[in-house]
Design a protein around this nucleic acid. Sequence first.
DNA 1: GTGTATTTGTTCGTATGTATC
DNA 2: CGATACATACGAACAAATACA
Lengths: 83, 83
Amino acid sequence: MIYVDLVVDLYSPVPLYAQVAAVLRTKIESGELRHLDPLPSEKSIEQEHGVSRDTARRAIRMLRDEGLVFTIPQRGTFVGPPP
Amino acid sequence: MIYVDLVVDLYSPVPLYAQVAAVLRTKIESGELRHLDPLPSEKSIEQEHGVSRDTARRAIRMLRDEGLVFTIPQRGTFVGPPP
DNA sequence: GTGTATTTGTTCGTATGTATC
DNA sequence: CGATACATACGAACAAATACA
């Protein structure tokens, strides 16, 4: 089993936030995260991927811009189109 | 009414940050922004003028260097001389 | 009912890399 | 080469709403 595409690569020309977004996108498209499931919080993304909160937020924003997830303030971000 | 001097001109020899600073300076001197009023945040300057945060920061620093505004870290920038 | 922890929102501070003029 | 400009990335601090013990 290869996990290479589930970790971020500091030396890739691909921005860190885009790499993190790709990991989350894969979890959604694979069904690991299902409709209305909460995404990992910004803090847990920070810890799990070793990135800053800024980067975690950019990743989430990218998925939100794609219409894959929606965010409820002070609640979290969830899988699915904006309600 | 002419609004030309309230927008930035990418083709002007005047640096973008100086143009943005001029817009903010006008708002202060015209009274639209009053003593202790918060300046637009770096982010809103980004969005409203279509410039990078770097440029927004340079503009604010310019006004700060002029003594027109003062910045409180993590709070914002306000109209008036440094307290 | 009362704190405490969690989570997102919003600021600013700083640094690096790249491109352009 | 230096100044300008943008994108990326990390850090820090505080606010506000929600969730939970």
